Computed example of a mutant assay.
Amino acid sequence: MAPKIIPNISVDCVVFGYDGTTKSLNVLLIKRYLESKETHEILVNDYVLTGYHALENETMDDTATRVLRELTGLDNLYKKQFKVFGDPNRLMNEKDIIWVESENFNQRTITIAYYFLVKTDEVDIEKNTRQAQWFPVNNLPELGFDHKKIINEAYADLKAKSLSEPIIFELLPNKFTVKELQDVYESILGVEIDNRNFRRKLLTKKYLIELDEKQVGVSKKPSQLFMFSKDIYQKIYKESYLISI
Rank of each mutant, 00 (worst) to 15 (best):
E239H: 09
K221G: 04
Q215Y: 04
Y207H: 11
S223K: 15
E239A: 10
F228Y: 09
L211M: 13
Y233S: 01
K214I: 14
K235M: 06
S219D: 14
G217M: 03
E210N: 10
P222S: 03
T204Y: 12
E210D: 07
Y207K: 03
L202A: 02
K238G: 11
K214H: 12
L225C: 07
D194P: 09
V218T: 13
I209M: 04
Q234K: 10
K220Y: 13
D194Q: 13
I193V: 13
R200K: 15
I193P: 08
F198E: 08
L225V: 07
Y233Q: 00
I209L: 11
N197V: 12
V216S: 13
D212I: 08
K214T: 14
L208F: 03
D212A: 13
I209E: 08
I209D: 03
I236M: 01
D212R: 12
K206M: 05
L211Q: 12
Q224K: 14
Y237F: 03
M227W: 01
K206N: 12
K220V: 10
I209H: 02
F228C: 01
K235R: 04
K201T: 12
N195S: 15
Y207T: 07
L225F: 06
D212G: 12
K238N: 08
Y233V: 00
G217V: 05
D212L: 09
K214V: 15
V218N: 07
V218L: 05
N197H: 13
S240I: 02
P222M: 04
Q215H: 05
E239W: 02
N197S: 15
E192N: 13
L203A: 07
L189F: 02
I232H: 00
Q234G: 01
V216K: 15
I236V: 06
K214A: 10
K201M: 11
K206S: 10
Q215D: 07
K201F: 09
F198C: 08
E239P: 00
I193G: 09
K205E: 09
Q234C: 02
E213Y: 06
I209K: 10
E210H: 04
G217A: 03
K230Y: 06
S240L: 03
E210I: 09
L202F: 08
S223D: 12
V216A: 10
L225N: 04
K220G: 11
I236A: 00
V191L: 11
L189Y: 02
D212M: 11
F226M: 07
G190V: 02
E239Q: 10
L211A: 03
K206I: 00
V191T: 12
K235F: 04
I232F: 00
I193W: 07
L208Q: 01
R196V: 15
L211V: 00
D231H: 08
K221R: 14
N195A: 15
K230G: 04
L208V: 01
F226H: 11
K220Q: 12
K230S: 11
S219W: 10
Q215T: 07
K206L: 07
D231E: 13
V218S: 06
R200D: 14
E213C: 06
G217D: 05
Y237R: 00
F228T: 02
E192Q: 14
